[in-house]
Amino acid sequence: MTLKNLKLALLAVMSVMWAGCDKETSLDDTYADILLYVSETTVWETIGSGGTPAVEYMQVKEKHSAEWQRLAMGSIKGFDYVHGHAYELEVRKTILANPPADASNTTYTLLEVISDVPSVTPKPDELPEEAKFKLKMVQLTPFMNLDTPLAAPFDFLTFRILDHQDEYIFPGRPEFLQYYDSIVMSSPVLPDTYCVYRKSADESGTSEEFTSQWSSHFFEKRDFPISLKGYKDNEVKYEFSITQIMRERDFLGVDWTNGAVAIANPKTSLIYSILDTRYEFLLTDTQMLNSTCYVIIKVAFSSGLTDAEYLKRQEAGLRWLLEKHLGKHPSQTAADFKTLPQDADIVEIYGNNTTRAALLHSKGDDTHEEYYYVIAEPK
């Protein structure tokens, strides 16, 4: 065999070997071994319409992530999820260079179950009836004065704690309080908690703080669980949960077609969430300019920050909000907007099927401070 023929034969063999390897994994795939937390609660979501059945998802988040994300059941190879258990897993997260059509570009493979914690909530029949309580959302105040039974992000929701007979006791002290040191509102998809009852003791005696009714906005656009947990000696003794139904309108709580528009003297509302206190927002009433509706959103001031820190917080908070509810829309330009000020300095443009929004930067001058804000309008 000549040297030339030998080279050709070697190339042919190597080509076959490479082709065989490509069937197993792409040379461009990347992976990392990470910690992944899996919540003890799941969420259900309907994909599409026309009577399509709801799909159940696990709720997962990586070690340094603040928010829980959906992940389809069975998406972690080698892992069998048990309802009511919370897990800490070591998994191999692989980013596929050439994912299958209509599939995620990310796969997970279980390496180790670091912890598997079953629910510690006692069964209801372990407590007397008078020790039990319930949580109920009793009032919905839509942002745009719409007549709707469904809450949207930035609507104002009011909750009550009821006794086991669905009775609201106010004024007065419900009987179930004697069984607990504290009662706390929480959600596995939100980072903070809210205490509705706390009993404390010191050298001067025992004191109690109790809130029977409270209100909050929520930044979520999907249904999410809310729980009230009763603690005694730092252990959960009883828990009652509901699913808060959320339906995003055109944008947050804004309905461009059916919502109210402020003709004069628009007011600004403080939007806050008791279960997610990272940011508070200032949202104007829907206004009209050039025959087009629009709203303005800012980040509320936080005490204890320098001007530079507050400016950075404004940009981060508005980016977080827009990325959560709208995707980036680089094809849109300032010329597409009808309500932007003439000297608008656009940082980023976001949008969905009904709405476009611009993250704006005002450089400030001798009479006005530098700040970031958002203007959103219908397409």
Rank of each mutant, 00 (worst) to 15 (best):
185 M>W: 03
127 L>D: 00
269 S>Y: 08
174 P>F: 01
124 P>K: 04
102 D>R: 14
286 T>S: 13
198 R>W: 06
87 Y>N: 02
20 G>W: 10
228 L>Y: 05
155 D>S: 06
338 K>E: 06
47 I>E: 12
89 L>I: 04
174 P>I: 03
369 E>M: 10
139 Q>N: 15
54 A>R: 10
313 R>A: 06
243 T>H: 07
289 L>F: 15
204 S>L: 10
110 L>N: 03
179 Y>W: 06
63 K>L: 14
228 L>S: 05
312 K>F: 04
229 K>M: 11
89 L>V: 05
274 I>G: 08
102 D>F: 14
245 I>Y: 08
330 P>K: 05
24 E>K: 09
80 D>E: 15
95 I>P: 00
310 Y>K: 09
143 F>K: 05
352 N>H: 09
265 N>I: 07
36 L>T: 00
314 Q>I: 05
254 V>Q: 02
112 E>M: 06
331 S>V: 15
178 Q>E: 13
230 G>T: 05
32 A>N: 11
176 F>R: 00
322 L>E: 02
201 A>F: 05
119 S>M: 06
267 K>R: 13
334 A>L: 11
150 L>D: 15
377 E>G: 01
206 T>G: 07
4 K>L: 11
224 F>N: 02
113 V>E: 08
1 M>N: 10
70 R>L: 14
246 M>V: 11
302 S>D: 09
375 I>G: 00
165 Q>D: 13
275 L>W: 08
142 P>N: 10
54 A>Y: 02
254 V>Y: 00
2 T>H: 03
125 D>Q: 11
370 E>F: 00
66 A>D: 14
31 Y>E: 12
108 Y>F: 15
307 D>S: 11
182 S>N: 04
158 T>F: 09
114 I>Y: 03
41 T>K: 15
120 V>R: 08
358 A>N: 04
298 K>S: 15
278 R>G: 08
235 E>A: 13
182 S>A: 15
246 M>T: 11
85 H>L: 03
332 Q>P: 00
108 Y>T: 00
360 L>T: 06
224 F>G: 02
283 L>V: 14
310 Y>G: 06
1 M>L: 11
375 I>M: 09
27 L>W: 09
126 E>Y: 07
24 E>F: 12
282 L>Q: 10
178 Q>D: 13
203 E>R: 12
121 T>K: 04
37 Y>P: 00
266 P>Y: 04
110 L>C: 07
174 P>Q: 02
158 T>V: 14
203 E>K: 15
299 V>M: 06
167 E>R: 08
